[in-house]
Design a protein around this nucleic acid. Structure first.
Lengths: 157, 157
DNA sequence: GCTTGCCTTCGAGCGCGCTCGAAGCTTTAG
DNA sequence: CTAAAGCTTCGAGCGCGCTCGAAGGCAAGC
């Protein structure tokens, strides 16, 4: 299963057209969350926003919703350290995959309650995984449809 | 490219867990739009809605937005014939793949203006195709993340 | 003839996830 | 010393795509 997925990703990435300029693509360099350097200086809200391709406004909103709790410096400015950034990457991926704010808030709340909530968190991830698979199936169908239309427009019978 | 995508779809579908009960899955039986029988009696709004997994309310809304124009019977009831149903399947797939109502309206308007608009329609489909590919890449990344979490929860080091 | 259920139009409402702007403090550059 | 850029909080607003409810017409079964 894991192998099938990795092969799939390879295929899709190979089928792409080189490095893209999309803000979202920043995440592609962060495939492994541990790629975020623990030793680096903490990031400001704008830097963190750039990292995950969201706006600073949105990051503040996420904090307000309890999804992330960056430390503050002496002036009250947010400081996103490595664990905060890793969490942001996680949050962004889950949001992009269609997980709702409600579910994400529930998940983070559980995560902050310690290991006792692991079974429930595991369940949430399994459900989300199923939703993602269904979405990929839907997208594949839509992709086929565009291919069909384009072929027709290009005069293929 | 087409081959790579089809191989991809096969993999994903093979990785699934058999027939699902999701309303959206109705579309999977309609992979080929020509699978809709031209000879069959036209469908009511509720039947058409069931076919594509939307609500009757939504179908009326689509009509109001000019996306589809079913005929009416003597009592003013909508009658979705085969071409209308095919269009509904197309619309639903495009919506599920994240195409906006605005773009879809533009596309349909062009389609109703005849073959002169084919270059522009082709362009729209190419853009949509690119968007779908990016989405699949994002979803693959999210899928990996869920797999990573689940493995961690299952105690894999 | 009456009930049941599906159909019609219309306009208003809504949930989600941001998104923005105002008013003010801090830091940096010149 | 000043200006510019970036940070803070707060509350309001918004765009999308439905979603719903009211008020009434039509068709079929008892």
């Amino acid at each position: 299963m894991v192998m099938a997925t990795e092969a799939l990703i390879e295929r899709i990435l190979a089928a792409g057209d080189g490095p893209s300029a999309s803000a979202i693509d920043a995440l592609h360099e962060l495939l492994d969350e541990t790629a975020i350097d623990d030793g680096a200086a903490p990031k400001s809200v704008a830097e963190a926003a750039r990292l995950v391709g969201l706006s600073a406004h949105t990051l503040r909103y996420y904090e307000q919703e309890g999804l992330v709790r960056p430390a503050r410096n002496a002036s009250g400015y947010r400081e996103y350290a490595a664990p905060d950034l890793r969490r942001l990457v996680f949050l962004t991926r889950m949001r992009l995959s269609g997980m709702t704010m409600t579910d994400l808030k529930r998940y983070i709340r559980l995560a902050e309650q310690g290991p006792g909530t692991i079974p429930e968190r595991r369940r949430i991830m399994l459900d989300q995984q199923e939703r993602i698979r269904r979405q990929i199936r839907e997208l594949s169908l839509a992709l086929e449809t565009t291919e069909y239309k384009i072929r027709a427009y290009d005069g293929h019978p």
